[in-house]
Design a binder for these strands. Structure first.
Lengths: 171, 171
DNA sequence: ACAATCATGTAAGCAGTTACATGATTTT
DNA sequence: AAAATCATGTAACTGCTTACATGATTGT
C-alpha cells in the first residue's frame, strides 16, 4: 500500500495516530493502540511493534511531545501535539489527493475477477460475506454513537454497491 | 495493512496477481504490472521491485509455472497457473473473512475525525475530494466496459455514503 | 541516429508483521 | 497467591517502497 505521497507528509497511519493523540491528549501509546484495535478496519493490526516505534518517530520529528512519568519502575509517556504536530495534522486532514483516492476493499477487488467464479458461486460468496459483515455489526461498540452511525451508513452503502455490481455481472 | 490471514493463504496482492496471470495467461510479469498500474486503486504501486520478486515467490511455491523464452539476450518468463495455483486462487476468491472486512478508505478515515475540522472546512474538503474523484473518472480507461461500470457504481455509492455521513456530522 | 517506450531486473531502506519478554495492576 | 489484564517495549523477519541499471523495440 502506498503510504506516503511525499517524504514530508504523514502516512495514513501516522495521521490517524496523531488525530487519536489529539482526541485523548495527554495520551499514552497504549491508548493509541486501543483506538486502532477498536476500529472496525483490520487494515492495521495496532500491534505494539507498530505503535511504540511510530510514537517515537513522531516525537523525534517533534510532532508530539511527551510528559514522562513513571509507574513503579516503568517509564510512561503522555503525549500531546506540538504546534508543528497540529499543522501536520491539519495538512493530513485536508489532503485532497488522499480524499479522492478510491482506497481498498477486498470484496470489490474480488468482484473485479467475477469471471473466475462458477455460476451462482459468486452470488453465494457475496451473500456469505455480507452475512458475516452483518453479524459483526450486530455487536455494536458501546463507544461513540456518532462513529457507530457513520459505520452503519458506510456498510449499507457498501452492500448496495456490491449487490448492484453483482447484478451487472449477472446481466 | 494486514496482508495475510494465515501463513498458508495468499495475500491480497498475491491473489490479485494470480488472478491477473490467469486472465492473461501465458502472462509476463510486465503485464501483471500494467494491470496494477491501470487499476484505479493506488494502494499498490505495481512497482518492478514488488512484482518481479512476487512472481518469483509464486513460482517457488509452484502456484505458477514459467515457460522461459529469450528476446535477444534478455530472458523472458511466460507464466501460467499450476493446478495448485488454481486451487489457491479459488480459496482466495471465496475467502469470506476477507470479503466481510470493511477495507480502507482515506476519506472515510478522515470523516471519523470530523470534530477536528473547523466549521464548513469539512464540507469544503469533502466537496474538493469528490470533485477530484470526478475529474479522475472523467478519463475513462478504454479497457473492459464491465470494469468501468463496476468502478462507477462503486464511486457513486461512496459519494452517497460520504454525503450522508457529512450530514450526520452537521446535524 | 536518437528518443521514447517496452521490459526485466537489483539494491538500499523502511515500516509494518508476529512473537517474545517483562513489569504493574486488578480480579478471583 | 495466582491468573488475567493493563502497559511498555524489543528482535527477527518480510514485503513493500524508491531509485537505479540495463537491454530490446518502435517511432520520428
Amino acid at each position: 500500500m502506498k503510504i506516503r505521497s511525499s517524504s514530508t507528509e504523514l502516512s495514513e497511519l501516522e495521521g490517524a495516530a496523531l488525530a487519536t493523540v489529539r482526541k485523548h491528549a495527554p495520551c499514552t501509546p497504549y491508548k493509541v493502540r486501543e483506538a486502532f484495535r477498536a476500529s472496525p478496519s483490520d487494515v492495521w493490526s495496532g500491534s505494539a511493534g507498530a505503535i511504540y516505534p511510530l510514537m517515537r518517530r513522531l516525537e523525534a520529528e517533534k510532532l508530539v511531545a511527551a510528559r514522562g512519568e513513571r509507574v513503579g519502575r516503568r517509564p510512561r509517556r503522555l503525549y500531546s501535539l506540538t504546534p508543528k504536530g497540529e499543522r501536520a495534522l491539519k495538512a493530513w486532514l485536508t489532503d485532497v489527493d488522499r480524499g479522492a483516492s478510491i482506497g481498498f476493499d477486498p470484496l470489490r477487488t474480488r468482484l473485479f475477477f467475477g469471471e473466475f467464479y462458477e455460476p451462482d458461486e459468486l452470488a453465494d460468496y457475496v451473500a456469505k460475506s455480507l452475512e458475516k459483515m452483518h453479524r459483526e455489526i450486530g455487536s455494536p461498540d458501546p463507544g461513540d454513537p456518532h462513529k457507530d452511525g457513520m459505520h452503519k451508513i458506510w456498510l449499507a452503502a457498501r452492500e448496495k454497491a456490491v449487490r448492484k455490481i453483482l447484478k451487472l455481472l449477472q446481466a
